[in-house]
Design a protein around this nucleic acid. Structure first.
Lengths: 131, 131
DNA sequence: TTATACTATGTGTATAATTCATATATAGGA
DNA sequence: TCCTATATATGAATTATACACATAGTATAA
């Protein structure tokens, strides 16, 4: 009976997590993460997918198509540049590098992110003040 | 010349803000905000739009249609209930009230939000560690 | 009594974002 | 040869968001 109860609780929590843990400021957060990773060092899509786990994105839960399209969009907007690298083993890589405009965008993102932290903290304070 | 330069800077900043300040974890944040406001006290859509400014949403920049549809969706999912209130002056209001399921959802949201604060803080640390 | 503004709730449609499935190709090892 | 890992990409479906507009009751000032 207790096990039954525990199982119900676990299921409920999982259901709610599935319901609410998508988003809440995660989607577009991908963009500043990619920019920051590229500021650390030039990289290619497949590697960036691995490195994104630094920011709480699980590599296996991600859609490569999403990442690649994101990178091509950033390139189209002049935030990064790319070149093919065929030197070493394995298939050719499209190596991305951040531009000065991309660095400015990242700086602007940090302001936004700082502001969002404050908003979220304020939210939690409000929540904990509930009777 | 200096004014010219300042103007350029202001324009650039505005352009970047327009580019990056949308999202970055704001969209779905609307949901927990509505739930929290309804936990504070039952309310209706039009009033909620006003009260959302508590969370950094400017009332005049918001899409009423978005809010109303959000509320109807939450109702469809059993997170809130509604009833028409025609008593006092002005047109009838659809008064929303949060359910126990909605309260559980809000609690789950606060876990997510706490986690997101940590992720965002970690991001800023990483940014400031850049050479 | 008319015009105007404010309160209040919605729908229709277009665009953007996201997800899921799939295609392509190179290289290494069993 | 077949399987796996690396690597990039497209197509289609679904979902989310934005923008415009429709409807209607009430108050108030001209």
């Amino acid at each position: 009976m207790c096990n039954e109860h525990m199982k119900d609780l676990a299921e409920k929590k999982e259901k709610l997590a599935e319901y609410c843990c998508r988003g809440g400021r995660m989607e577009r957060f991908l963009e500043p993460c990619l920019l920051l990773l590229l500021c650390q060092e030039p990289s290619h899509g497949y590697e960036l997918i691995q490195r994104l786990c630094d920011f709480g994105f699980e590599p296996e839960t991600q859609d490569p198509g999403h990442i690649y399209r994101h990178l091509r969009r950033l390139e189209g907007e002049g935030m990064v540049t790319s070149r093919w690298e065929t030197g070493d083993s394995g298939p050719a890589k499209r190596l991305y590098q951040v531009t000065s405009e991309g660095k400015e965008l990242l700086a602007a993102w940090t302001d936004t992110i700082q502001g969002n932290i404050e908003i979220l903290q304020f939210f939690l304070e409000k929540y904990h003040r509930l009777a």
